[in-house]
Design a protein around this nucleic acid. Structure first.
Lengths: 213, 213, 213, 213
DNA sequence: CATGAATGAGTGTTCATTCAT
DNA sequence: TATGAATGAACACTCATTCAT
């Protein structure tokens, strides 16, 4: 009996999260009302408050999960030793872009929220930590493509520069009204070009600098 | 007599603009209320409506002025024929980045606001137009550095890719709490590196593609 | 359990309608605020929005119900073939006057509200339609008392003229503070006189005109 | 000097009254703002407060003047012994209708405002008095057309009934958006018909009643 | 006498949230 | 566990009115 109830409870929670995730992604956190989420989840809006303290808690809960999934996916990509370093970077970058465009409206939350808001305690820290791990992973993937023996400072610089491209791609389209599929169909080649350009540029400048030394 | 009143009026208008600019920048257009702006400006919320038709007009006023200045500066940079194409692009890009970081909090407003709302008439169009002109200017500067005879589609693609870098740079630091000066002191070399990387990358891939054909 | 809640809900809705009806009647639609209605109904102003989409919907709801009842009553009167045409007109007119005086304060709403606002969709149309039907019914009842073979234009003219009397009766007393019963006791003979005068006048002039031709 | 100032002052006051009168008539008291009146009058909105205590005072001032003019006109009409009683009634009625339609949006103010509002002191009394005089004048004009020796009660009844027609005519078109000229062009014959019907009806019923006795 | 600047009270409406069941 | 009813705080915006000059 308890089991059945627990199961039903879990289902409701799931459907709330699913609905909220979809709606936040589609229209942005602010534009979505609790009542809309409830309707989409097939429950009363008051039920949401049973599972989540408030709207923000819902958002936070919603943010961690996919971000962890992304991290896992990128980690797997980076460890796939069947691919060359360049290919690994490309794969990981593509994962990142795809994820961010899929979760467009959450992107600012994931990556641009002020790191420190007084009223947030733990939640932000978790997020911040995950963010850092993710960035570290990207940095390693970038460095693996560049000539060895870069200083730590240089490594950071190239990683940042490469990351600018990713950030730029996502930021440019994060407000678009087009669906993810429309976006990818129209722009996938441009995204690939952007990644190739960024990598080629990093490599060339890195070599020039190495030579100059 | 009249003079004194006019002066007071001008002061009030200025203080409203200043307050609104700061608040919009800090917390975003939507999150700021007219009453907050008024309080920050030291006047009643109704006073704002004496000087600006509505919230959007306030935003528009705030956005157009500096954006036009930027456009003028970039236009001048692009027409400086003492410089090589590469140098001109670098100059123009630096102008753009500096401006956007200086007006950080308005950046989303300038370049990421939904471009088309049915009920908006002129104001947004002006902004949109300025935006397009600005992007066109950047595009021409990019193309001038690349091998000739690119198709229109290719031109757009490289321009976009180059723009991703700019957008990425700005986006990455647009939420930072550091002052503009702190930012530039710490990151100017990184920014320059990013621009060089983007240009080198574009050049190389463009040549590769030309050769492949 | 559900029953109790439903009952409470129904009560609240009722009290809102009652309050709104009274206030609209007393002071006119525009002059009454949602907050006033709420206070009079003993609930928060937001509660009104649970039951009615907006102020206009409240008005519409308030207007349609009794108006439909009136229409049904008048339709029945007009089809009562036990009566002569004159008696039918008298019956129908009396129904109309009684209804309008009973719903005095809503009368302007029913019959004098601006018929066409661009942004209104269905609701007003329904009301407008009902109004037209009602007027058509009265017109037919008038014509049935007059000599046959009137042109369409003449028919409209006499119907209008007859309607002026009804409208005048109601308008004259629509602001009165007397109760409906007091009014009828004091003025029923006057009203009847008015109807007889209007009918006699129409008949005589119509005959004169017919003879003149 | 004083003279010149006084003259200018009088002019300003006049232009305010003119503007307010036109705007109130066009769009109704509530819908017109002080600033609109000021703009139409060619002065600052604050200037209005020099001449009139508040918006309501402006309205009241505006109402008395034309009403007195109407009264004078009707009085003249009633005393024109070149005309028959019927013609005099017709003339007076037409004056009344024309005036009320011309001052449509003020009509409720003139003739339908609650006679006693606690917060109004004198102004209403004046108005009320004028109203009564006007009605008395109409009553006499009606009675002059009817058989002599009516009881006082009967006189009142016929006067009321006749007045219903006037009231009905005006009320029916008082909310119309058509200009006065459009209205008169379209409906002048209907109005005349209405008056003839009302008079003919009153006469006939009065004779019938007299005969019955 | 006249005015531009400024404001408080108020408008309809929305929304996240709580309460009683 | 779950919900319908209800609400307070807030939103952009308007308007008659007052104040300092």
């Amino acid at each position: 009996m308890t089991n059945k109830q627990e199961q039903r409870s879990e289902e409701t929670k799931r459907s709330i999260l699913t609905a909220a995730g979809r709606l936040f992604a589609e229209r942005g956190y602010d534009a979505v009302t609790m009542r809309e989420i409830a309707k989409a989840a097939g429950c009363s809006h008051t039920t949401i408050y049973i599972y989540f303290k408030d709207k923000e808690a819902l958002l936070h809960h919603l943010a961690m999960e996919p971000l962890q999934a992304l991290f896992a996916e990128m980690e797997a990509g980076v460890q796939n030793h069947l691919l060359s370093a360049d290919e690994r970077l490309l794969a990981v970058s593509t994962s990142f872009i795809r994820f961010c465009l899929l979760n467009r409206s959450m992107y600012p939350l994931f990556f641009m929220a002020k790191s420190s808001r007084v009223d947030e305690k733990e939640p932000s820290l978790e997020l911040q930590h995950l963010r850092n791990q993710l960035f570290g992973l990207l940095k390693d993937a970038v460095i693996a493509c560049l000539p060895p023996h870069l200083t730590e400072e240089q490594s950071w610089a190239y990683a940042r520069v490469y990351f600018f491209t990713l950030h730029g791609v996502i930021g440019t389209y994060s407000q678009s009204d087009e669906t993810f599929d429309m976006l990818m169909e129209r722009l996938a080649p441009t995204f690939e070009l952007a990644l190739r350009v960024a990598l080629a540029g990093c490599k060339q400048i890195a070599h020039e600098e190495a030579a100059a030394k």
